[in-house]
Design a protein around this nucleic acid. Structure first.
Lengths: 142, 142
DNA sequence: CAACAGTTTAGAATAATTATAATTTCTGAT
DNA sequence: ATCAGAAATTATAATTATTCTAAACTGTTG
């Protein structure tokens, strides 16, 4: 079991972000219980429920700073809402269209091959695969 | 060269949408010049520039109706803005992060293999691959 | 051409996010 | 410990894309 950061404090130090009350608390909420996909409002709700006084603006600021520091990855799937993924290793996603649920697909269980070079030049920064799933279980077609 | 619909009128008929002034005009703007990726506001601007009196609300309505009819595909990549893709065949996308430009990758020039079955059940409706490109041309790393 | 359903519209409403400007809190030097 | 300055947080306003609403208009059908 790898534990890259013993605690939130160490994690913030590595990211060169001042360990403030709010950032520490948000880091704990985000990283102390396995892989998650959270929206900003959602995390704000959790923080308030945990008696952590933090404004929504700070939640947004912090999420973006964490993305900048490579601690989070932003996942955009639906118009009008971003999710923040605590798993920053190479992986992809199932997206359940009925519930909006997002689920990781490990990077090594899927393969994307023959990606052509970008026509306008530039370098490939990342390849995202989103597998859209609809609720109905697979059956023979009518 | 395949031309699936001789004109906008035929296309609307096939989609069982009344051929109104606005829908005809928008269909022409969308489909009469090759594959495109347009945002709603953008299309609205084009329509006004072409002297077609149409409200933004109608542009949104029409785009969604076209998606429902399978004439367009909605592509979500950035938070807060949807693009509508006139190419509804099997394909994927390059996304140029600096400019926001979207470019098709033909479906047969890329392969996604070993997609595991969705853990919660359900059937795979579509697999989207987004190749994120950053402007800087590829070089050896420093 | 009248009636009715389907469409369009301006404008209000909503939702997520970002900006602003004032206040508070960290940090490092004393 | 204390202080000054920088950085962070906050409430609130502003912005952006999108959706809703209810009234006005238009296309179709008899």
């Amino acid at each position: 079991m790898t534990r890259p950061f013993a605690n939130a404090l160490e994690l913030l130090r590595a990211a060169r972000l001042r360990p403030t009350r709010q950032r520490l608390a948000l880091a704990r909420l985000l990283f102390e219980k396995g892989d998650r996909h959270v929206a900003a409002e959602e995390l704000h709700g959790e923080a308030l429920a945990a008696q952590i006084p933090v404004s929504l603006a700070t939640v947004y600021n912090t999420l973006h700073q964490f993305v900048g520091a490579g601690l989070l990855r932003e996942v955009v799937i639906n118009p009008g809402r971003s999710y923040f993924d605590t798993n920053v290793s190479d992986h992809h996603h199932f997206f359940y269209e009925d519930s909006g649920l997002l689920r990781d697909i490990p990077g090594d269980s899927i393969a994307v091959s023959n990606v052509p070079p970008p026509p306008e030049g530039g370098s490939i920064r990342r390849v995202d695969v989103i597998v859209r799933v609809e609720k109905a279980p697979q059956k023979g077609r009518a």
